[in-house]
């Protein structure tokens, strides 16, 4: 838990961010655009790492907040095109709305004593219902202002973000996303070392016990869930401005579960790992779909099964620990724990 130690994770994170900051200098603009998409999706993984990895709230509902953010931004900005400063305002309000929606849902669940796998089930049902709902909004009955929700076709022509005179497209958009990602990543790292950061880990490890150390557990859970909702919503808005469209597939079952898969496979208790795995996945998936391969999902499913069976802490985290042991000769926590388990097995 000590901050700023030299270990693989920190070095890798520093190198990756350094590389991301300079890479537009020597790659073509199409790749830059692709990477901005990968980075936009990283916020969704960060949101799940925060609430699941750190706080133990297992949610399939991040897609809901992703979609809410995207649709809200689309409807607001398309209704008020031409108004100056509407796009940054839309971004800000969308993020707040995502957080608020998550807080309301969280309030009902956590204060009602709903936890563990039931949170997963409720959020899964919610995602399915919203995806059905959005799919049937094709008619003119579903216009909000001048914008039609558009059923399965979704909403097109969503305006890009504009910061004053600068339109955020191409490299500008890339740097905008990257800077936000860097800032949020650093904030999350700092947060995990804060008082509340320690409390959410305690809640993950033992909810009932943590109440008896004087923590208002449902309140903390609702707030963390809200923060996760805000991050997911941010991801949705960046996605909508990146491709200028959003469709109900944002709420589809696959969208709901992909973050779970990525975070579980990369390392659910580690922000760096989930960013890395997310970017790698989207890169890999895009490569495969570009080459027309149908095997992407099969491979991904197999990876998921194998990782859960053999490296339950996540593959990137496993590599971090391995390298820590090789290069920094440090007894990592994980190893100590594993040895203890071995020890217990030998006695038992």
């Amino acid at each position: 838990m000590v901050q700023g130690k030299i270990k693989t994770e920190n070095i890798v994170a520093a190198l990756i961010f350094f590389f991301l900051f300079i890479c537009p200098l020597f790659i073509d603009s199409y790749s830059v655009l692709n990477i901005s998409y990968f980075l936009s999706m990283a916020f969704l993984s960060l949101s799940l790492t925060l609430i699941w990895g750190y706080c133990g709230i297992f949610s399939f509902g991040q897609a809901v907040f992703f979609g809410i953010g995207g649709y809200f931004y689309a409807v607001l900005t398309l209704n008020l095109t031409g108004t100056s400063a509407i796009t940054p305002l839309g971004l800000l309000l969308g993020v707040i709305l995502g957080g608020l929606a998550a807080w309301i849902l969280g309030y009902f669940m956590f204060y009602g004593g709903v936890n563990d796998v039931f949170v997963g089930l409720i959020t899964l049902c919610l995602t399915l219902v919203l995806s059905t709902f959005m799919g049937q909004t094709a008619g003119s009955a579903w216009n909000i202002g001048q914008v039609s929700l558009g059923g399965f076709n979704g909403i097109n022509g969503i305006p890009a973000l504009e910061l004053g005179p600068i339109s955020l497209s191409g490299n500008n958009f890339y740097y905008f996303v990257l800077i936000i990602l860097f800032v949020i990543y650093c904030l999350l790292k700092l947060f995990t070392h804060s008082k509340v950061g320690a409390a959410i880990v305690a809640i993950r490890e033992n909810r009932e016990r943590t109440k008896m150390f004087g923590y208002n557990v449902p309140k903390i859970q609702s707030l963390v869930f809200a923060a996760g909702g805000a991050l997911a919503s941010l991801s949705g808005i960046l996605y909508a401005t990146w491709g200028n469209y959003i469709t109900p597939s944002a709420f589809a079952l696959s969208s709901a579960t992909i973050p779970v898969v990525l975070v579980a496979a990369g390392g659910r208790k580690n922000f760096t790992a989930s960013i890395i795995f997310t970017v790698l996945y989207y890169w890999f998936a895009q490569g495969l779909s570009a080459s027309g391969s149908q095997y992407a999902l099969v491979i991904l499913g197999l990876i998921l099964i194998l990782v859960t069976l053999f490296v339950p802490d996540g593959i990137i985290v496993f590599l971090f620990h391995l390298s820590d042991r090789l290069f920094f000769h440090r007894e990592s926590k994980m190893k100590e724990v594993q040895e203890e388990h071995l020890h217990e097995k030998n006695i038992g």
């Binding site: 297992f58 779970v260 898969v261 149908q294 099969v298 991904l300 998921l304 859960t308």
Partner: peptide
């Protein structure tokens, strides 16, 4: 929770496998 993740992996493999 791990069984949730693993059965999701199984479902991906089966669904896409049948598609192929």
């Amino acid at each position: 929770l791990d069984s949730v993740v693993v059965t999701w992996g199984i479902s991906m493999v089966i669904q896409q496998g049948m598609l192929i």
